[in-house]
Every structure is written in structure tokens, then in C-alpha cells.
Design a protein around this nucleic acid. Structure first.
Lengths: 126, 126
DNA sequence: CTGCAAATGATAGGTTGCTATCAAAACCGT
DNA sequence: ACGGTTTTGATAGCAACCTATCATTTGCAG
């Protein structure tokens, strides 16, 4: 059966505290705060379990390793900062993608990715 | 200087005839119609040149090799068929992504990806 | 507290997509 | 038609990301 380990707790805590989707290497970095010595294999294993148990959801970005975010109810999308590579969730969706769908095609879902520079990086750059 | 070879002509013809973004392996498959015996290395080389000369534009899909489409003037997005993996260009953009952007963030571009099943696959499935 | 199944960390191995290499073939100006 | 330069095809190499393996450690039921 599933055991409650220091490492998995550290990983969940890292994801909750971050408040944004994290990549496996980001998770490792943050989780080490709470559980030093953790290995990357443990992160991949925990993420796999947490996705299967629907506690985490993958956020895919082209050309990037997937980020993972704690499940949330609201429909939302993401912003990718080209400076730091961090991903943020964003509210409001312009909806109505049906009229973009070609005739005869079945639309099942959509993804919107905003690209630019986050507030922190803008400030750092001046 | 740049030479006009049978292979590069076959690759450009394949992309024009397809009328949709193609991945390197799709390009190879289609271009072999016009130039049998072509190798994948030639496709990668030609694609690199055609992107640099702004004849082709990459279309990135999470978890997929990039597709490449002949440059076009209009702003548009793409539809990914989960059945056949083909990518299609789609018209109309719901615009106004600025109000989705968090305060302090600089929005530079956006991507919309529709997912579902294309007309051909729907028909095949019945 | 004890014992054993589960979890961990280190690292080797696998996969995929792309680039480098190099001998052979194809372009193309002359 | 010649000849040098470019291009090609085959394949080895590389890089990034993820999974498998296995000896050691840890959680936890009894």
C-alpha cells in the first residue's frame, strides 16, 4: 500500500507553496528545502502517482519539459515567461472556439498559451 | 551559392501540396513521391534553410515534433487531430488576450491550439 | 520493537529528435 | 563535357528527458 513519506510530503508542499505549475527539476529544487538529499527519480515517481490520483495535472509547453499544477476547478490557461521560464496560471478565457473549428471537425478541447515577460523579470530588467 | 536540387524542390512541393503544416517525417514521406530515396538528413537540412530564409514557419505542438508550414500573411492558429496527428490551420482568432494578462506582465504573443478529431478521421470512425 | 514490504537515491539504460561526418553523387558555370 | 563546389544519404553521435534496476533505508502493522 501507499506510505506517507517525508519526500512525497515535501513535493506536495513545494507545489502548493509555489502556487504555479512546476517542472520536475523545479519541484526537485523546491522540495529539497523540506527534504534535502532528495533525488530526481523520486520526483518523477511522485509526480506520476499524483497525476494518476488526480491531485496534479500536467501543463504542456512546446519545447519545454511539462509543468505540473495542483488540480483546480476553474477553467484557465497559462503564461510562459521567456526570461525565467516560469509558468503562471491566468484567468479569463475568451471562449467561443467553436467558430474557429473547421466544418466536420469535432472540437474536444483547446489550449491558450500567452508568451512574454513576467512582472518580476520586467522589474529586474528595468 | 545555393543550388537548386531535385530534393529541395520535392520538399517545397510536398509542403505546398499538403496545404497544412508537416513534421519532418511527414515531409520525408510526401517528398519521396517526387524524389524517391531521399534521406531524413536532407529534410532536416532543407527545413533549417527554409526557416532561415523565411519560406517556412515552425508550428510547435506540446509533446510532438514541430510541424512546418509555408509562410502566410494572416494571423491564424491550429487544430491537432488526436487520431491521425495531423495539424490544420484554422481561421478566426478570438483576440483580446490582454485582459487575460496579469498586471505587470508584458504580453508579446499568444498561441491557441484546438484539439479534437478531424473530418477525415470522424468519417473513418463512423 | 521487530520485520518486511514499500520507498528512496544513484545511476545505467532507453527513447526521440536532431546534428555531425564523410565518401559518393549531383549541380552548374564555363 | 569538365571540374570544383555543393548537396546528398547513411549512419554515428549527441542531448534532453524519462524509466528501470538494485542495494539500502524507511514507514508502519502487529
Amino acid at each position: 500500500m501507499l506510505r506517507r513519506t517525508q519526500q512525497r510530503e515535501a513535493i506536495k508542499k513545494a507545489l502548493i507553496e509555489a502556487g504555479r505549475p512546476l517542472s520536475p527539476s523545479e519541484i526537485l529544487f523546491e522540495a529539497k528545502e523540506h527534504s534535502p538529499g532528495m533525488g530526481i527519480a523520486t520526483v518523477y515517481r511522485a509526480v506520476k502517482q499524483l497525476v494518476e490520483s488526480e491531485w496534479l495535472v500536467p501543463v504542456e509547453i512546446p519545447g519545454e519539459p511539462p509543468r505540473y499544477e495542483v488540480v483546480r476547478q476553474d477553467h484557465h490557461h497559462h503564461f510562459y515567461c521567456r526570461e525565467c521560464g516560469r509558468v503562471y496560471a491566468v484567468e479569463h478565457c475568451p471562449g467561443d472556439f467553436r467558430r474557429m473549428t473547421p466544418k466536420g471537425f469535432a472540437l474536444e478541447s483547446h489550449e491558450v498559451l500567452l508568451r512574454g515577460v513576467c512582472a518580476e523579470c520586467r522589474q529586474a530588467a528595468g
